[in-house]
Every structure is written in C-alpha cells, then in structure tokens.
C-alpha cells in the first residue's frame, strides 16, 4: 500500500516539474528516462519477482521500435496502430522464443536470452533493405493523441510520464494479486511451487510475455519520439544497463528500481564525455551491489540509518 502512495506523490511531483522546467534538454532527458523506466518495470517483473534472467531485453525493445517504424513509414499505417502491430508481432515472436528457453535454468537461461538479443541485433544490422542497417532508420513521424500532436518536448513529457505511471500501477497491482504471489513462490522455491499446483512453466511464460509487452511498447514509443533508430541503441550494453538498474534498485522493489533507473538513465546523458567509462562503472556497480548490498538501494538506506 505504501508503494502506491509513494508513486502517487511522485506523479504529482513529476507533473509539477513539467510546468516549471522550461529547458527542453532536461525535459527530453526525463522523457527518455521514462521510456527506459517502462522497459525496466517490465523486466523487474521477470527478474525481480519471478527470478528469471533475460540478458536480451534490448532485443525486444528493438523489435518494438523497428516493426512500428517500418509499419508506419513503409506501409503508411497510423502510428498507434503501428505500435499495436509491433507489440502484437513481438509477442508472437516471444511466444516462440520463450517456450523453449524458459524451460532452461539459471546460466543456461542467461546465455540463451543473450543469444536472442544478439540474433535480433544481427538482423537489424544486416537486413539493410528493411531496417536501414547500421546507418539507422530515419523519417519516423510523430505521435498524436486525439488529434493533438505531441510535437514538442513538453507535450511528450506529460504524455509519457502519465503512461509510465499507469504501467507502474498496473504492475504493482499484478504483483499484489494471486498471480504475483505465485511468481514469488517460483522465485524462492520452484519445487514448492509445483507442490502447490502452480503451473510453473505457464506462469513463467505469462510474466515473460508481460515484460516483453512493456519492452516492445517502450520501443515503439521511443521510435516515434526520437524519429530515428539504429541498431547500436539496442545492443547488449543496453540489456546490461537494464539489469544494472534493477540490481542497483533492488530486485523486486518498485520504489528502488524507479529511483535507480531514473538516476542511471540521466547520468550518462549529463556526462556524455565519459561515454567510454560507462561499461566499467556499470560493471563495478553490479559487482559491488551484489557483494555488499544484495537488496540494492533498500540496503543502502538501512545501512546509512544505522551509522
């Protein structure tokens, strides 16, 4: 219950921020971090609550972005329908991919999902006729809501943050349900989950599809917001960034993950000249958080209180 109040207050804060901040650079940065937050919220359901790792999630974001871009530019479909098509197509793909891979456990699952991410990255690089190859895909139109074009940073800011909060509330509700408790059982003791009559594979599939839904949706929104996509924005580095955000925030902790993903997605934009150092910083963050504060931010707060 406390989480919901926290997010309600946060939502009001963010909306207020939108009225006061006039700098388009900052608004743009915050909107991009909202898109990242959608992906991370979805992945958190999979990694934090069901305990299943996916090292290829940027691949699903890429699918969402590319399919919606291709549908709207090459076939002239309305952007919203294009996003719908993209999400649907990505889900179909995820069913075929998820069915065999989710039977795997621990490091086999990690490697298999890593491979899926790589496959998608290779295809987006190589299939030049459809995706534009390494040069990227240009000329994607803008979104509009009920005839109201989201054509500047301010309008998109309000739209994307409202959507993000809706999605976060939905996932909190999901975790508070019977389904969410079943997922937690799967994470802590899979055999016990079997004994309680939980169809483990089916539940893993469902939560995987939900997280892919979040990823593909975020990908589509990203494509229509930036207007340009290229394979390098959806590589393995991105997948690992998402994992870092969840681990630093604390697996299965909505508030912590919210804070860490907003901070970690804004920082690289602020210090763009340190681009080459980010993999090292991310790596060290992962190592030290796992070593000393396995519950992420929550532990850090507790630790500072004790001092």
């Amino acid at each position: 219950m406390k989480e919901r109040y926290f997010f309600a207050v946060l939502f009001i804060l963010i909306i207020f921020l939108g009225f006061f901040v006039k700098n388009p650079f900052i608004l743009n940065m915050l909107s991009l971090s909202a898109i990242t937050l959608i992906v991370v919220t979805g992945l958190n359901l999979l990694l934090g609550f069901a305990g299943q790792i996916s090292l290829g999630h940027a691949g699903f974001v890429a699918l969402g972005a590319y399919i919606s871009a291709i549908a709207s530019v090459k076939f002239g479909v309305n952007p919203w329908i294009a996003i719908l098509i993209a999400v649907f197509a990505t889900e179909i793909f995820a069913i075929f991919i998820g069915y065999p891979t989710l039977k795997l456990k621990s490091h086999y699952l990690a490697m298999a999902t890593l491979a899926i991410g790589e496959i998608i990255n290779i295809v987006t690089n190589a299939w030049v006729e459809a995706t534009g190859g390494p040069q990227g895909f240009v000329g994607i139109p803008l979104l509009s809501v009920f005839g109201f074009a989201l054509d500047n940073e301010v309008k998109f800011y309000f739209f994307i943050w409202s959507l993000t909060f809706i999605l976060i509330f939905l996932s909190i509700n999901l975790i508070d349900s019977k389904f969410g408790r079943a997922l937690k059982t799967i994470k802590s003791k899979e055999n016990a989950a079997y004994a309680f009559g939980i169809n483990v594979h089916l539940y893993k599939m469902i939560v995987f599809l939900i997280s892919v839904f979040y990823a593909a949706l975020a990908g589509g929104l990203y494509a229509f917001y930036i207007g340009f996509i290229s394979p390098s924005s959806f590589g393995l580095t991105e997948s690992i960034n998402y994992i870092t955000m969840i681990v630093v925030g604390g697996m299965g902790n909505f508030v912590g993950v919210f804070i860490s993903s907003v901070i970690l997605s804004i920082l690289p934009n602020l210090f763009a000249s340190f681009e080459d150092y980010w993999p090292i910083i991310n790596g060290l963050l992962l190592i030290f958080v796992i070593m000393f504060t396995p519950n992420g931010l929550k532990d850090i707060f507790k630790w500072t209180k004790k001092q």
């Binding site: 990694l47 305990g51 790792i53 090292l55 621990s106 490091h107 990690a110 580095t237 690992i240 994992i243 870092t244 681990v247 080459d276 150092y277 980010w278 993999p279 090292i280 991310n282 790596g283 060290l284 963050l285 992962l286 190592i287 796992i290 070593m291 000393f292 396995p294």
Partner: peptide, 22 residues
C-alpha cells in the same frame, strides 16, 4: 559474496565481464 544465489552470481559474472571488456 554474502548469501549468494545462483541468479546473483550470474549477474555478478556479467558485471565482471563488462568491467574487463571496458
């Protein structure tokens, strides 16, 4: 690593690998 689970060790090796790579 304290109270290591398989999942956290996987994530940790990923962290180690990108640190080395970087």
């Amino acid at each position: 690593t304290k109270n290591a689970t398989e999942l956290s060790l996987i994530i940790m090796t990923v962290g180690i690998s990108i640190t080395i790579k970087g």
